[in-house]
Design a protein around this nucleic acid. Structure first.
Length: 284
DNA sequence: ACTATATCCTGTATGC
DNA sequence: TGCATACAGGATATAG
């Protein structure tokens, strides 16, 4: 699922494919993708035409395409959103929801989304940072991130550490996969109360998250089930490198004990029962 | 202010 | 073969 590294791969692909190009027309094939656009689908298509795209930017899992006039197109890929760049003559992919045509007649930009959790919208004056993203915290790759302040914020929370890592208002970009990978690397149980962690332990798990996401980015992102692809339609290879996520019953790569999958927040958490035992759990 | 849970959405896999 | 259920999970609304 697209987390920070996957979104960054998409951002880089868009930077090459659409920077400097002017949108000629937008075709909306499924308006649900635009339910976050204030004027709805028709307004999105009308208002988006004629805009010239500048270098795409990202915070956490959000992308935005700044326009030369100061507005922006904001995108969140949800679980299964993809941007594809294809020649107009190519057949539309299954689940294609929005098509962007360009004034230069070159390849189209297509937004594809099977599970329909992704959203696109136009943000007035959003080029330097959409106001709708004001609540999204800096991510671990942000040069302006205040790491010590982040550690203090994390340590002020009583929730389990994984909930805190997944809270995009505290630190953005981390999703279920990289949270589990970071917690395994830091040998922490996901329910360990954040306020019971020492500053160095919090630094350790943040360092682990940074390391695993850096490695994933270098391999073009994680592809777990082919729903995530770059703008060319090819998958990342990092799925081969995951140490715990999706490896229930397989041996821990550190100690050999079978890994476990447990229900967590209507999804799953994976951990090693020996390396990541319950300790300092919320409510205990 | 903080915490926790339900909800949205659809294709695939699994069980009976 | 067909039907039902579980599962994937990010962000938000809502309840506590």
């Amino acid at each position: 699922m697209p987390e920070l590294p996957e979104v960054e791969v998409v951002r880089r692909g868009l930077e090459t494919a659409v920077s400097g190009r002017t949108i000629a027309a937008i075709r909306v094939l499924d308006s649900r993708v635009l339910q976050r656009h204030p004027g709805g689908a028709d307004d999105f298509a009308t208002a988006g035409a004629g805009r010239t795209i500048q270098a795409p930017r990202r915070r956490g899992k959000y992308l935005w395409l700044p326009f030369a006039d100061g507005d922006a197109l904001v995108a969140h890929l949800g679980m299964s959103g993809q941007f594809r760049v294809d020649d107009a003559g190519q057949p539309l992919p299954t689940h294609c929801r929005v098509v962007f045509e360009f004034a230069d007649g070159g390849p189209q930009l297509r937004y594809v989304d099977q599970r329909m959790f992704g959203r696109l919208w136009l943000s007035a004056d959003g080029a330097e940072g959409p106001v709708e993203l004001a609540h999204i915290a800096a991510d671990l790759f942000d040069p302006l991130l205040d790491r010590n302040a982040l550690v203090a914020t994390i340590r002020s929370r009583t929730s389990g550490i994984k909930r805190v890592l997944l809270n995009q208002e505290i630190v953005s970009g981390i999703g279920n996969i990289y949270a589990d990978e970071a917690l395994w690397a830091a040998k922490l149980h996901y329910e360990t109360a954040a306020h019971r962690l020492s500053p160095s332990r919090v630094h350790q798990v943040l360092d682990a998250a940074t390391t695993v996401m850096t490695a994933a980015l270098a391999e073009g992102g994680t592809s777990f089930d082919a729903l995530y692809v770059n703008v060319n339609g090819s998958s990342g290879y990092f799925g081969r490198s995951l140490t715990v996520y999706g490896r229930a019953d397989l041996p821990c790569l550190r100690c050999g004990r079978p890994l476990v999958r447990e229900p967590f927040m209507n999804r799953s958490s994976y951990r090693c029962p020996r390396c990541q035992p319950p300790s300092g759990v919320v409510g205990r």
